[in-house]
């Protein structure tokens, strides 16, 4: 096992399935023998606000929150939200971004503009930026709501846990009806 802890930060907007994805990730890591802590904020964030979830794993984890500048992998479910959290990522950190855009109220009302050149901004600061058409891939796999499973698939290739261990947890976590679809979505993400 590596020394210290690895830190993942999942961010996006309420309703995108971030909490569910971070739960699944944490279970996978626990089953793989790591100590795991994860944290998120419930409550008012449910109503369309920003959602973020820290997942930290290693031999022994104390804090469920990462330090600013210590995040190894930022997984962002909404394009613009990525920028809000760039400061959390290590200099050599990895950024995985879904290209989905969810307009905040001020943008929907036409009072503010959705920022442009998000990709360029990210790539100015970070060498490894992976942009994923998570919603499209999920739609192709059967349901756009599985975009979170697609993102887990993408993330899985950056984490040292066997693919079968991921699938084992996915099988436990989804009802029979949804298991195969989600495994397809996961694999599509992993191979994207």
């Amino acid at each position: 096992m590596f020394k210290g802890t690895k830190n993942i930060l999942m961010v996006g907007v309420g309703g995108q399935g971030i909490i569910r994805a971070s739960d699944i990730l944490s279970l996978v890591l626990m089953e793989a023998g790591y100590d795991v802590k994860k944290s998120e904020v419930h409550g008012m964030a449910q109503r369309g606000g920003c959602v973020s979830s820290d997942i930290r794993f290693g031999e022994k984890v104390y804090s469920p929150l990462s330090k600013i500048g210590d995040v190894d992998i930022l997984v962002s479910f909404e394009k613009m939200e990525t920028l809000r959290y760039l400061g959390y990522v290590k200099d050599n950190g990895i950024i995985i971004v879904s290209d989905e855009k969810v307009y905040p109220p001020s943008v929907a009302l036409g009072d503010e503009k959705y920022p442009e050149n998000i990709e360029a901004v990210m790539k100015t600061f970070f060498a490894e930026v992976k942009i994923v058409s998570a919603v499209k891939i999920a739609e192709y796999a059967g349901d756009r709501r599985m975009a979170n499973t697609v993102m887990l698939g993408v993330l899985s290739s950056f984490i040292d846990v066997g693919v079968e261990e991921w699938k084992k947890i996915l099988r436990n976590e989804f009802s029979n009806k949804l298991v195969e679809r989600n495994i397809n979505a996961f694999e599509a993400g992993r191979n994207s």
Binding site: G14, G49, C50, M80, L86, G87, V107, P115
Partner: peptide
Amino acid sequence: SRERKIFHVPDLPARPPNLC
């Protein structure tokens, strides 16, 4: 103490919670 990169990102619109 730790020197951190300064991130020049555009001002982002806030995302307050809203009624469904």
